[in-house]
Design a protein around this nucleic acid. Structure first.
Lengths: 223, 223
DNA sequence: CGAGAATAATGAACGATAGTCATTTAATGA
DNA sequence: TCATTAAATGACTATCGTTCATTATTCTCG
């Protein structure tokens, strides 16, 4: 019957989605644990109790699988940033909150950042489906867009000076990423080079940017 | 004779250094061209007309060879930054010059940045000699130190507000790296996300930072 | 010079691993 | 129950980093 066929095909679709999810979960664990290069497809297959070949029924390559996790991470970040945007706060405080969220997100998921940073390597990207790359970049763009909106709002509110908000949004985004990347560099030498905690560093970065962005600096407003 | 032994051993040392250099040259070409993962040891060996095994007489692993190039890149950058430091300019203009240099360096050697960014991956770092990693981080630290000195000078000159100069130096360094990393992400989509040129973005980033850093903003000084 | 020792270079062989595909297993529906 | 389709499997292939026994070269000193 048609109804039956439809029902079973729906269940099958659901099962396929579940398998896909299981593979992603196992891959996340493997990549987070060992890194992209050191983790093997067999590790991933073992982790979700499937055979190596089965992985390739769901993902075209190790790199594709990997980029899906990058997209996942960016999606989580975007979701969290989106929530904060709704808070009823002046733009500068909102940016501060977003930064705090970014920091919390990093502390909770440091491994997501590690894999995100690898995704810019050309020889990884070359082996990823065009479509996935596009999705990945779109996700990053949406995060930046959220920052952009807040900056624009700040301009309207008269808190920020008139400026190319998109460029500022990118600078903020890349600054935070850059700081975290440097911080990730090597825990062992963290004390030697950085000398300050990640939180302080991010805060200083934001302060620097906000001072540059603000129409009036705090002491001028209060004075 | 002792004199003879010394002379030949000196020549040998020189020859060894030359071979090492030849391998590095070939590796640079291969890594720049194909990326760390896609380039093979055989590519590198072919490139300098040596056998695969010979590479391992000069470098412990593919990763070691790779990190040597990262150090080389950082060294070049450090050297260039050091030259600018000697210019007789106020600190803010000096920072501007350094940024311009960074940009020029990137335009001339975009591939150095690509390989630098990979060096933060834990599974690469795990396979590199402790000592080389240390050297690599020390090199980055020295670059940041140059920025730090300029910022300190700016504080003395009364151009910059009193602040934790080292933190600012790191923020500047990471901001620039972050911007370039984002720019590197994908030339194809560059127009979509970034919408502005690298030069503009770097300039905006510096302006933002300088405005945050300056004791008085330009219009207040001139007014 | 020349024989033997020391050093350097080589590439075949090894182990690991991404990706493929012929075969097996399971599910479906008449 | 059985033919058909779909899904899963893991042995197999090709590739590549690394090693090491062998070969070639250079050096030493009688």
């Amino acid at each position: 019957m048609d109804a039956t066929r439809k029902k079973t095909s729906l269940r099958k679709q659901k099962e396929q989605a579940q398998r896909r999810e299981a593979i992603l979960n196992s891959a996340r664990e493997a990549f987070f644990d060992k890194g992209f290069m050191a983790a093997t497809i067999e590790d991933i297959a073992d982790g979700c109790e499937l055979a190596k070949g089965t992985i390739y029924l769901y993902f075209k390559s190790k790199e594709d699988l990997y980029i899906c996790l990058v997209i996942e991470g960016l999606g989580l970040l975007k979701r969290d940033l989106g929530k904060i945007r709704e808070l009823d706060l002046p733009a500068d405080l909102l940016l501060g909150e977003m930064l705090r969220l970014y920091h919390v997100f990093y502390e909770k998921n440091p491994k997501y950042f590690r894999i995100m940073f690898l995704s810019s390597q050309p020889d990884v990207r070359e082996r990823v489906k065009e479509e996935l790359l596009k999705e990945c970049l779109a996700c990053a763009a949406e995060c930046i867009q959220i920052l952009n909106e807040v900056i624009l709002r700040g301009c309207e509110e008269g808190i920020f000076r008139k400026a190319n908000s998109w460029t500022f949004a990118i600078v903020l985004w890349t600054m935070v990423n850059g700081i975290i990347m440097q911080y990730e560099q090597d825990p062992f030498y963290r004390g030697d080079i950085l000398k300050v905690s990640l939180g302080e560093m991010l805060q200083e970065g934001l302060d620097l940017a906000l001072n540059g962005l603000r129409l009036k600096r705090p002491e001028e407003v209060s004075g």
